[in-house]
Design a protein around this nucleic acid. Structure first.
Length: 277
DNA sequence: ACGAGAACCTGTTTGC
DNA sequence: TGCAAACAGGTTCTCG
């Protein structure tokens, strides 16, 4: 489900509910997600105040008092939803962790496919945590520039679409926004990464920045799993130019091509073979 | 060392 | 209608 805009939407939804609040109780309902929970997870988290909620690529980082950071990834199907005090719906079988705040509202982590994860790090050491250490800056990070991207694409013999999905090349981008950014940049997803430099890389950077910024403003894209913390859908899926639009006319003004779908490294790629070179 | 493909897990959609 | 195959927004491991 979640790429950068969806994770950022969740982060912004959680902030007002959690920052400054104390986590009164943690109900960890299974021993593992994609990886096991750390030993003593619920005990370590319970009782702490949430000082800040950050994001690194697709990871949420909850800064807790006492120098602890809760690292969370939503995987493909993870959701974080807020249930107001008094909402006593019984837990769904895929509700894996329930946090209750000192105000009595609950934050529920639900993940049907269990590709998500939660773990802990000491404050100040989270960026060197094995999960985060190799992540490239994301396109909304000031450290992300055409020069830096070009350097990370240089020499790569893989198609640029696959390179954009590599979190060591660009942080936060997934299958949807890779397709959308390449269309906006007029670049073929099949072009080798090493051949995207100079002017082509110069087009790709604003394409990434713009599509991610617009998607965040729309609350992300809800295809099947993504929900805002309120439970509402995002609506950027209505603004897709190519993703999921196989057979439709290319939306580029003056282009007479049609959107095609191909498989690249076992993922669907949507693009226009006419205006994307 | 790099890149392609499979694997992880569950649910939904598509095709015969 | 029913069942099997394909597919889904991510990451990581294995193999060549």
């Amino acid at each position: 489900m979640p790429e950068l805009p969806e994770v950022e939407t969740v982060r912004r939804g959680l902030e007002p509910a959690l920052v400054g609040r104390r986590i009164a109780a943690v109900d960890q309902r299974r021993p593992d997600l994609r990886i096991p929970f750390p030993a003593g997870f619920s005990t370590l988290v319970a009782g702490r105040r949430v000082e800040r909620i950050g994001r690194r690529a697709k990871y949420l980082l909850f800064g807790l008092d006492g120098g602890l950071v809760l690292i969370c990834h939503l995987g493909m199907s993870g959701r974080m939803t807020i249930r107001p005090r008094g909402d006593n719906r019984p837990p769904d079988p895929h509700d894996h962790v329930v946090f209750t705040t000192d105000e009595g509202l609950r934050v529920v982590f639900n993940d049907r496919r269990r590709f998500g994860l939660m773990t802990l790090a000491r404050a100040g050491e989270e960026s060197s945590h094995p999960l985060l250490a190799a992540l490239a800056p994301d396109p909304l990070d000031p450290a992300f520039t055409a020069g830096r991207l070009s350097g990370r694409l240089a020499g790569k013999a893989t198609p640029v679409k696959a390179a954009l999905l590599d979190q060591k090349v660009v942080g936060g981008v997934g299958n949807i926004y890779a397709c959308e950014a390449l269309h906006r940049a007029g670049l073929s997803p099949r072009r080798l990464a090493r051949n995207v430099a100079g002017r082509r890389c110069g087009r790709l950077v604003p394409a990434l920045v713009d599509v991610l910024t617009e998607a965040i403003a729309a609350g992300g894209s809800s295809l099947r799993d993504h929900r805002r913390t309120s439970g509402e859908l995002g609506y950027f899926q209505h603004s897709f130019r190519v993703y999921g639009r196989e057979g439709e006319p290319c939306p580029t003004p003056g282009c007479s091509g049609a959107v095609r779908r191909i498989a690249q490294s076992n993922r669907s790629t949507f693009f226009c073979g006419r205006c994307q070179r």
